[in-house]
Design a protein around this nucleic acid. Structure first.
Lengths: 158, 158
DNA sequence: TGTTTACCCGACTAAAAAGCTTGGTTATTT
DNA sequence: AAATAACCAAGCTTTTTAGTCGGGTAAACA
């Protein structure tokens, strides 16, 4: 499984949705602000998330995104696969033709590792993440930081 | 843990050493031929493997590399860390200062995953890999392919 | 109706990493 | 001395990542 910041961004954004999306859709602008991810990069990620039916969009003022299923039914492996369109560690995408049409020496090793990682991540749902104390604490900090920014902006007459 | 082809190459090369290095040192040229990895790229990888004391070198004709310990005492995680000099999935290298000095929402998740991958890979030694039937089969194919190349070269008066 | 909000989409770019090349030097053996 | 193979350092090419820009289009609301 390919683990890059791309997947991290996607999971973080989806977790933001799970945490803050109880009362209506969440705009990418809000996620961008809370999670420090560039808006247009988020747009690209959410295009893929939408194609993979993990989120649904609501257009127009007050619009944004919401999870397309309940948070217990979306796991981390789903999210990473959606934005990476690849879930394994082998160079041959599990086909076994890594060396001139045949399996390379370590093909089985990477194959096993891919499964290991996938199993681990698919056992973790957005729901279970939102229940973690650590996550809640960080989330609350982010919300107050965002509110503070709004207050500051108002004080400056913006 | 960072999983790229770099780590794959390194593990493959080390496994080649474990499989073929019973009778004296193995040259990088031989590994390059058998495993389809560019010689100078191998040189770079082995420089790191040597610094991390996973291999020892013998210079001069007939020289090459050998494992610095017996193959049961070298595991896959060691090898990957040696060439990547990084073993975790978090963006902050486990420090927890991913977002403006504080832990980001998913810090714990990546931290857990890192451990999961590391545990899996550190449980697999070069010794145990060499005992796998699949690995033996592929290895034998590679050796005969290499010999064939030599025969062909001789036939062409090279 | 028109303006605002926010999704949608494609192309483009900067920067980093990965993979590989070139061109040497040094140690050892034959 | 010649051949071999490790050692070393720049630099290059390709790919991936992260992000920008500039335009859309759909929906809400005043």
């Amino acid at each position: 499984m390919k683990l890059t910041t791309r997947g991290r961004y996607a999971v973080t954004a989806m977790l933001d949705l799970a945490l803050n999306g109880d009362k209506g859709p969440i705009s990418l602008a809000a996620i961008s602000q809370r999670q420090d991810i560039s808006l247009s990069y988020l747009e690209q990620l959410f295009a893929k998330l939408r194609k993979n039916d993990l989120v649904a969009s609501v257009r127009g003022p007050g619009g944004g995104y919401r999870l397309s299923r309940c948070r217990e039914q979306i796991n981390v492996a789903d999210i990473i696969s959606a934005v990476n369109e690849s879930t394994d560690s082998t160079s041959c995408q599990g086909k076994g033709d890594c060396q001139k049409g045949e399996a390379c020496l370590t093909h089985h090793l990477w194959d096993g590792l891919s499964h290991q990682i996938h199993d681990f991540l698919s056992g973790i749902s957005l729901g279970s993440l939102t229940e973690q104390n650590e996550v809640r604490r960080v989330s609350e900090r982010q919300i107050s930081a965002a509110e503070e920014t709004v207050v500051n902006a108002e004080a400056l007459n913006l």
